[in-house]
Amino acid sequence: MPAAPRSVLPDGGVMAAPTLTRVVKPIGGFFAFTLDTFVAMFKPPFQWREFIQQTWFVASVSLGPAILLGIPFVALVTFQFNLILVEIGAIDLSGSGSGFATVTQIGPVATTFIIAGASSTAICADIGARKIREELDAMEVLGIDTVQRLVVPRVLATAVNAFLLNGVMILIGLSGGFVFGVFLQGASPGQYVDSMKLLVGYPDLVHGEIRAVVFGVVGALIGCYRGMTCAAGPRGVGNAVNETVVYTFLALFPINILLTQIPYSLGIVGGH
């Protein structure tokens, strides 16, 4: 473990400045990088080939984990919710619970897990490997804008995938809830389907999809940024991927609150 660079002065007050710089500098760098990406997004030519390849790549690393993660996630929530309903004799309302939990929170939150755990890590590992092989420097030398060529297609590809993954999660949620509620905990199938729309509607679906797309964009940006700034050597790439997962989780939960609450406060969703 190499020791962190320390100030040579024994004065404690001098130590604070480098620590502050270490926290603040990457944040500033990330925002500058985000702006660069959004500027480059509208600058022609758009990299269609890279975009399609990346969409396929992100889908291939995320779809399997999404399905495998979605089933226990939904089963866990439905199982606990149905225990309450059985106790108060309202198991036939099981569909409303599944519909509400899946469309409003489980879909977007499970998408967050997949974006942070699968997509961003794969993107960061890929970009980080290119960085330490000095491919990115080589591209810069050839006059190719790495943000436009590599980052923009990845960000958009992850956004598209997040949109689709949320749909997959909702589908798994509703059908998994059906299996659990009807076959294992004794709800009636007709009542399940009928009560599904009790607490949620079309605006909630759109609300969930918008959140999923925002998560996708933020997750991909963090993965690309951390990959492009990773240190050389084996520990460098490993740490970069590790920090990508942590930062993505740290960013996505606060964003989820803001995006959940603002439409409710404005009265766009809710109130059926």
Partner: peptide
Amino acid sequence: GGPAGVGRAVGKAVRTSLI
């Protein structure tokens, strides 16, 4: 697989462990 392999291993581990 070298430094790039470490990055891939971390990604694979996170996917598996979340499930």
